[in-house]
């Protein structure tokens, strides 16, 4: 949609600007809810709306007390601690196993490739509530329900499709003559992998890892069922908080998480560009 030509009729002008207004409204709809909660989290009162003081930009009406509550309340701290331990562990499992499998899948002759791919992608396809129900039944049979290990394994399974998808996508552009060249010069398979293949697919691996991390970090349905109160994560605590006694501390947590997701978004975007540059694919 290039700029409006000078000979455009009135109708075209109205449509041109009208269309932009419509798009602006949709963008507003997308972003406004997330932006609105940021100032609300600095509310000095326990309200969920802008107080007259806040609208008048009175400094008295703003405070950090909800943040203080987040950092001092033992429930929230416990949840934060669980979140930052469970998500990295799940990510390590997903990335380790996922990268290996993606390399295997990218070979030219893989028997039952479609079937294997379907099984590996299935945690992303099956609705979370069904995964959660199945895991709850099965993990309680084998004694994993209500344990850290159970939650970590469940989250690792949920993160794997993302690793598979991103890493196989990077491997599509991988030039296999490079590994042959390395072998030709006397490098063993392990050395070839770490010195030649790994640096080239690293951006894909890291972005897959970020997806796996965010999947686990954000996940609430499975942890609600597979975990118990001692494995509660931040989303768990937020969910319970929203369902029972809604406290403004949730908004402070939400704001922190928004800042966190901005950082992640930036990281993924930078990685994507780097990957495209390394592989010689010009960015779109």
């Amino acid at each position: 949609m290039s700029a409006l030509p000078t000979y455009a009729s009135t109708g075209q002008k109205i449509w041109y600007y009208g269309f932009r207004v419509i798009c602006g409204l949709v963008f507003f709809f997308l972003i406004a809810p997330i932006i609105t909660i940021i100032p609300l989290s600095f509310n000095a009162e326990n309200f969920f709306t802008f107080t007259p003081g806040m609208l008048a930009l009175d400094p008295e009406a703003y405070s950090l007390k909800h943040y203080q509550d987040f950092f001092t309340n033992s429930d929230w701290q416990q949840a934060l601690k669980n979140s930052v331990t469970i998500a990295p562990m799940a990510t390590i499992i997903s990335v380790g196993l996922g990268t290996l499998a993606a390399i295997g899948l990218s070979q030219s002759h893989v028997p039952f490739r479609r079937a294997i791919m379907a099984i590996l992608i299935s945690p992303m396809i099956v609705p979370l509530i069904i995964s959660a129900a199945g895991m709850y039944f099965f993990y309680s049979r084998v004694g994993l329900q209500g344990t850290y290990l159970g939650v970590v394994l469940a989250h690792a399974a949920l993160g794997i499709p993302f690793v598979i998808i991103t890493v196989t996508a990077t491997l599509v552009g991988f030039d296999h003559s490079l590994t042959r060249a390395a072998a030709n010069m006397g490098a063993g398979p392990v050395r070839t992998f770490f010195k030649v293949q790994m640096p080239l697919i690293l951006p894909g691996v890291i972005s897959g890892g970020l997806f796996a991390f965010i999947t686990s970090f954000d996940e609430v349905v499975v942890v609600l069922f597979v975990g118990s109160a001692s494995q509660k994560t931040l989303p768990w605590q937020m969910f319970i908080g929203l369902r029972e006694q809604i406290s403004p501390t949730i908004l402070a947590v939400a704001t922190i998480l928004v800042v966190f997701s901005i950082a992640l978004l930036t990281a993924v975007e930078l990685l994507r560009r780097r990957s495209e540059r390394i592989r010689g694919v010009s960015p779109r």
């Binding site: 299935s122 039944f137 469940a154």
Partner: peptide, 30 residues
């Protein structure tokens, strides 16, 4: 070709087993 297939399967096997145990088994159980 067989060796290549085996190598590919060996790389995939750990993850496949992991998913079968942690994810597919629960679904079948359900």
């Amino acid at each position: 070709l067989r060796a290549q297939k085996m190598r590919a399967l060996m790389l995939i096997a750990p993850l496949l087993i992991f998913i079968l145990v942690t994810f597919i088994a629960p679904i079948v159980d359900m």
